[in-house]
């Protein structure tokens, strides 16, 4: 058998085992009495943690998108500011546009109209702004196409357009992108903490169930039950509960996110919180990861507890 075939066979075996675990074993499952409290606790914990995990995932993805967008958009754009006496402004603006248009790496350059500048200043100075009476610099929006020699351009502008200042936004772009990236990292850390909290809660619930069933475990050992048989009865139960609770929590969180206002209707960063396209498939991993977490947490708790029984 080829290496790929062997891996596929091993994978099939693992998946088969996982499905068998979820399917359960009617006879074996009955040996452990039903535990109402820990069952409800596990279901609720898994549901709540899955709900939070989906939101953390959405936050992480949204901040990732924002960081990428800011990074890409700002990296491609720059602003040329011309502060010159009123009688020289038009001539310097024309000269600057000429320089920019003849510079390799510049896709387009366009001077903002008075209306656009008024719109930019309106949030601070009001809508009826007498722009002609104010020493407002001319702004030229520059879109780069790549390969631009920024230092060379600055030197040319300094020689030919003395009032021009070229700003490629790097000064304020970097902290913004860094903040968005940090926010994405915090989303991922939150996901990790949620997974650890769920593991801790399930470990406590499993420990409680194991302690409550100490007599059952002793009886099972007495009649020849192997540790793995006893552990499996608990592991199966907690894995099924975590999967079910997390599935419900995930479904509710996805519904809540789907019902959030859309970014394009209201604008703003927070309304962009959500999934796009294939991103909607990612939350479906949460119940599976919850089940895997429950499986290992319960298994570890069960074997730790069984070591105390001869």
């Amino acid at each position: 058998m080829s290496r790929a075939g062997a891996i596929a066979a091993a994978l099939r075996q693992k998946v088969g085992k996982a499905l068998a675990l979820l399917q359960g074993d009617g006879q074996a499952d009955r040996v452990v009495p039903p535990t109402g409290f820990t069952a409800r606790l596990t279901l609720f914990t898994a549901g709540a943690m899955a709900f939070l995990a989906v939101f953390a995932l959405a936050l992480s993805l949204a901040t990732g998108r924002v960081a990428n967008r800011w990074s890409q958009e700002l990296a491609r754009s720059a602003t040329l500011r011309i502060s010159a006496p009123a009688d020289q402004r038009a001539a310097q603006t024309a000269k600057a546009l000429e320089v920019l248009e003849s510079t390799p790496g510049i896709a387009s350059a366009r001077a903002l109209s008075d209306e656009e500048q008024k719109a930019l200043l309106a949030p601070w100075l009001g809508v009826d702004l007498p722009l002609e009476n104010l020493p407002v610099p001319v702004l030229i929006e520059v879109v780069e196409s790549g390969g631009l020699d920024v230092e060379g351009l600055k030197q040319r502008l300094a020689g030919e357009v003395p009032g021009a200042v070229y700003d490629d936004h790097s000064r304020w772009r970097a902290p913004l992108v860094r903040a968005a990236s940090r926010l994405r990292l915090m989303g991922l850390v939150a996901l990790g903490l949620i997974a650890l909290s769920m593991a801790a809660m399930i470990t406590l619930a499993a420990g409680s169930a194991l302690a409550a069933n100490a007599r059952v475990i002793a009886t099972l050992r007495l009649v020849g039950a192997r540790d793995v048989y006893i552990a499996r009865a608990f592991v199966r139960r907690f894995t099924q509960r975590a999967l079910l609770g997390a599935a419900v929590g995930t479904a509710l969180a996805m519904l809540a996110i789907a019902l959030m206002p859309r970014a394009e209707t209201t604008g703003g960063f927070l309304t962009g919180l959500g999934f796009t396209g294939a991103g909607w498939l990612l939350p479906l991993l949460v119940p599976i990861l919850a089940a895997i977490t429950a499986f290992w947490a319960t298994r570890a708790a069960a074997f730790r507890s069984l070591r105390q029984v001869t």
Binding site: Q27, A28, R30, V31, P33, P34, V216, T219, L220, V223, G224, A225, R226, Y229
Partner: peptide, 16 residues
């Protein structure tokens, strides 16, 4: 195992 009927308790060694 108090939650299982007697027949299942007697069959317990077979089950495990």
């Amino acid at each position: 195992l108090d939650h299982l009927p007697l027949a299942e308790n007697i069959a317990l060694p077979l089950t495990v």
